[in-house]
Design a protein around this nucleic acid. Structure first.
Lengths: 102, 102
DNA sequence: TTCCTTTATCGCAAATAAACGATTAGTCTG
DNA sequence: CAGACTAATCGTTTATTTGCGATAAAGGAA
């Protein structure tokens, strides 16, 4: 990849939408968010119990969701409580709504 | 990947959302859809002119969008006219709207 | 049929993503 | 400080994605 000299650049909205979409591009991450939505918050350990995948894998998915800005973690020793980042969640919601309104 | 014995299965809605999201997970594909939305339809060749990427690359992106069901091609010799698949577009729209309404 | 135009596919290379087990890093409690 | 517990990171393997040029299809026109 990246074999072209110049990188194409798109509108910031386009890039942002693609970034959010990428975060949602894996069913496990969607499921995590759904779970998070219904509980409003939860701990990593809860997810490990819910989903039959390794703890490290879940941690990675959480990391990506965090990087995308869709969730945020709050230290609550000895656990970490993850919640949806409502600001960015609303931003994403608006982006998608806008996008599909064509 | 896929090193676990059993494949986890998710709700169909979850999978569907992830599939659509995957299709939107690349800025070029988002841009193609935006372009398609503003024109309602267009030809592959148009896109090659608009985006500074190889024709084969665009063809691949179109293929993925087609596989995801977001667009459809109509033979209009010697070209192919691509349009948004409104049925699936609306379905995707509803899925995302639902998802973000948490 | 042969040529021309358009688009899809093939084959390859490089980059990312996905998953796991093992280890490390934090943060209390005793 | 030592131990216990939770979650993140590391290192590896495998799969998927992205991109390109080159080639093949497909269709209509000459």
């Amino acid at each position: 990849m990246k074999r072209t000299l110049e990188n194409i650049s798109y509108e910031e909205k386009t890039e942002a939408l693609a970034r959010f979409a990428k975060a949602l591009a894996h069913p496990t991450r969607v499921a995590i968010l759904e779970h998070l939505g219904s509980q409003s918050c939860c701990f990593t350990g809860d997810l490990v119990d819910v989903f039959p995948i390794a703890q490290s894998t879940i941690s990675q998915h959480l990391k990506e969701l965090k990087n995308a800005g869709l969730i945020q973690g709050e230290l609550q020793p000895p656990k970490i409580k993850y919640c949806i980042n409502m600001n960015n969640w609303q931003a994403a919601k608006a982006l998608f709504a806008d996008f599909f309104d064509k």
